[in-house]
Computed example of a mutant assay.
Amino acid sequence: MRLLILGLGTAGSKIADAIIRPSGHSTRCSDLHAIAVDNDPEVLEHLAHIEEEAKFYFPKDDIEAPELLTTRFTIDEVKAKLKGYDVGTHDAILVCAGLGGGLVSLVPHLVSIIRETMFEPVFALVTIPAEDEGETRLVRAMKNLQMIKPLVDGIIIFDNQLWLDKVQGEMAEITLKKPATLSEKFWLPGTAEKIKTNPYDLVNRHIARRIRLLVHAGEIQKNTPQTVLDSREILNTITGMSLITIGLSEEELPDHGGIGIFRQRDESRVGRQERAARIVKLAEKAAFRDISSYCDFTTAKKALVLLSGPEEELSMKGFMAVRKWIDESISGFEMRAGDIPVSSRQAGRVSVLILFSGLKTVTRVQELYERFGREERKEQGIT
């Protein structure tokens, strides 16, 4: 799937940079383009994978009336960059931003520019601030989400509080592993000490991994999938579906990298049952634990299931069991599924990704609305 990513602010720019990071088998770089807009020149300078001509310094924070800033060189340059892409170059546009940040106020203006220039659907990927970022930022995040919802074709929600808590455990494991193993597992450059001091970097890699798998699913596969999932089906699952969450659970194959490429597939009944059980277990973790934001997925209108891993490790029996479970669980009637088989030389893990769209209940979003919406109504004199 061909994706144009627009990163706004520090969080959005770093997420965009993580998504387009080259990583062997994951996706062709030609299918991904990214633009970054931030008010911190140091952040822009350290974006390793976004091209220099696609980095734009915006010197103002907390923009109240971005429509008045169209003559500023930054906005004009971003507009020119967007118009520089030919119609039909991309399948979709993804706007990445941290809710509560100052540059989120640019979203309406930039989306209007995109709509003028392109016909592709526009989605947002937003992060909800953690509690320790302060109540003011949380209130602003809630208002930002309300502002963005009617402007885009769907919003992928990522809960920073949930994932910062998760990475604490991962960072504890990091010091026990050698850097080469860590780089392969988490797609992070550098030493364990560097990762330990930057938990948001690890969170961003989790975000990027989910998006990259979706992008890769929409490509022409070298190995023939048992169930093909193309870009159009992915877009049909998320377009017009408001709130979206993505779960992803993965299991490392223990003998990968050594004798893994010579491993003989166990075709015994026990071997087949173990592979099926692994898929079901990973699907449960993806839906209940390793989800981008906790949600009541039974309220989803649509869902998508995607398997990835060495072809000999994928179980169609487990796959069909997961499809049936998700199909019977969601409130809607559209359930799509596919697989990405890769060689053992390319991947040492089995992955199950589950996407829920059209959700009525995303736990953290509902908590913020209940917590701060009540106070806002009181201020307005509404009971």
Rank of each mutant, 00 (worst) to 15 (best):
E328T: 11
R278H: 02
Y294A: 05
G9I: 02
D165R: 08
Q168W: 10
L103E: 01
A300F: 07
K194Y: 01
G134S: 10
L213K: 13
Y369R: 12
L202A: 00
E233F: 07
T181L: 03
L106P: 01
A36W: 10
T298G: 14
C295K: 02
R371W: 03
W163G: 01
L368E: 00
V37W: 05
P41S: 11
Q380S: 05
G271V: 09
M118G: 09
T383P: 04
L44W: 12
K196V: 05
I261S: 07
D266K: 13
K177R: 09
V152I: 15
D230T: 08
R269Q: 13
D159C: 08
R269M: 15
L353M: 14
R2A: 08
I20E: 09
V203C: 07
M171G: 06
I207P: 10
I382T: 06
V228C: 07
H256K: 06
R345L: 10
R336F: 10
V152P: 02
I15S: 03
H206N: 13
L3V: 05
V305R: 10
Q146P: 12
R371G: 02
N236L: 05
T361K: 06
I19K: 02
M320P: 07
L229V: 05
T71C: 04
L248A: 02
L202D: 03
A276W: 04
R209H: 13
R364D: 00
L188W: 06
S105G: 15
M335A: 14
R212F: 12
I114S: 00
A48T: 15
E64L: 13
N204W: 11
T224L: 14
S308D: 11
I75W: 08
T224N: 11
D76H: 01
E250W: 02
E334F: 12
L235N: 00
R28L: 09
R21Y: 06
E367F: 04
I114Q: 01
D266E: 11
G358I: 12
H25G: 03
K360T: 13
A54E: 10
L229T: 02
R212I: 09
D62Q: 15
R115E: 13
R209V: 15
V152T: 04
E116A: 15
V37I: 15
S183P: 01
E367Q: 13
D201W: 14
Q346D: 08
D339R: 11
D201V: 07
A124Y: 00
R265D: 09
S112H: 10
N39G: 09
G373W: 08
K14C: 12
T383S: 13
R212D: 05
K281L: 06
F158N: 02
P179A: 13
S249Q: 06
A276Q: 05
I63K: 09
S331M: 11
G332E: 06
